[in-house]
Design a protein around this nucleic acid. Structure first.
Length: 368
DNA sequence: ATGTGCGCACGCG
DNA sequence: CGCGTGCGCACAT
């Protein structure tokens, strides 16, 4: 039963915020319950899901837990300047505006895409119903620092485990103890990529399964971090916790933007035919050559078939059909879908981009 | 009792 | 100084 929990919860958060009330678990649950009659536990578990997919950000503000509507925070004051290399595909840019080539694009889900992702209704559900309340109190914490925030909705973890439910310890580290005021601490479900942009240069090489957990996991038992970083105890998987590095400093990413924008033209076709898209061709023929004609379900099953079942769900949730897919830009894929950076990069570089190119090339051939 | 509105103080950039 | 946040209080239902 996919209830629009996403909307409900985000709506509650927004509403609480506008009312100048702290959007904490209690208030959120109460409001959702009152407005929609949903029970507490359900709301709480849905909220956790949203936190995991970073639609909602759990933060520690002035010594207490609070929640943020990620969509709003992103565009908020601390702009992570995520449009860094707003990879404006030259060709794409053109027709994305003058949609003539696409025919009626009235569906314009594009707006939702760039804006709140709150639009779409809930999805999956099904899984975890369990309490596991603890996880809310003891998830991973991510030091806000400054740049550190760049809370681009990207987590890195194994693609295999849909619901990690990181911790299990029940003891909430009494927020009071570690107040210190100020500083909101963004608490992320697993580990996150402080510097959103992992240089794309590597993308081409990323053939490996999604198992790779990119560098900067924050893990690092809060230890040296500011006292407010608290709440951590990011258990996740011990293995991963180990490979933490001094997370915080990662703020200064050495991303070579210009470079990645420029290079894009090289591997296109190569990737398309060979490389990793095993199922690609199969699927393509299955549902017709032109992605333009794909439905939302087609898009989802396409990504499922090429090895990204989880992410396929995100595409479905965001109602990405063929048209939308062809309109997607890099930033849309990386941040608009709330999927992890690793898969997102692969998906964009190896599939979205490729599909767009081949579609557009076909198109231009027709006209020449 | 519970929900709502908002003045005000606080910390940050 | 502007902005985001949320406490604490008054008011509404």
């Amino acid at each position: 039963m996919s209830e629009p929990y996403r909307e409900w919860i985000l709506g509650s958060i927004d509403s609480l915020r506008s009312r100048k009330a702290r959007p904490d678990l209690d208030r959120i649950c109460r409001m959702v319950k009152r407005r929609h009659g949903s029970d507490w536990d359900r709301t709480r578990s849905e909220l956790e899901k949203l936190i995991e997919e970073q639609t909602v950000l759990k933060v520690n503000y002035k010594g207490s837990v609070s929640y943020r509507n990620a969509a709003k925070v992103l565009r908020g004051r601390r702009k992570p300047e995520q449009s860094k290399c707003a990879v404006k595909q030259p060709s794409l840019a053109d027709w994305s505006t003058g949609d003539s080539a696409l025919g009626p694009v009235d569906e314009d889900h594009m707006e939702d895409m760039e804006d709140e992702m709150s639009t779409t209704a809930g999805m999956d559900s099904s899984m975890d119903e369990e309490g596991d309340e603890s996880s809310l109190d003891a998830m991973c914490a991510q030091s806000t620092a400054d740049s550190g925030i760049s809370m681009s909705p990207i987590t890195s973890s194994n693609t295999s485990q849909p619901v990690p439910s990181p911790t299990s310890s029940k003891n909430s580290p009494t927020h009071d103890a570690l107040r210190q005021d100020a500083d909101s601490t963004y608490i992320l479900p697993e580990h996150i990529q402080p510097a959103a942009q992992q240089d794309t240069g590597s993308v081409a090489l990323m053939q490996q399964p999604a198992a790779i957990c990119l560098s900067t996991l924050q893990a690092e038992e809060e230890s040296a971090l500011t006292p407010d970083t608290l709440l951590s105890d990011c258990t996740a998987t011990p293995d991963e916790a180990v490979m933490s590095d001094g997370g915080p400093h990662a703020g200064s990413d050495p991303v070579e933007e210009g470079e990645m924008c420029a290079k894009s033209t090289t591997e296109e076709e190569t990737v398309n035919s060979g490389g990793m898209n095993n199922g690609n061709d199969v699927v393509k023929t299955e549902m017709g050559q032109d992605p333009l004609l794909w439905s939302v379900a087609d898009v989802a099953s396409y990504f499922t078939s090429v090895g990204f079942p989880e992410q396929a769900l995100a595409f479905r949730t965001q109602e990405i059909d063929g048209k939308s897919l062809l309109l997607m830009q890099r930033s849309d894929v990386l941040t608009g879908l709330s999927i992890r950076l690793g898969p997102a990069l692969k998906i964009y570089e190896n599939h979205v981009k490729v599909l767009q190119r081949s579609h557009f090339q076909d198109d231009s051939r027709l006209f020449s």
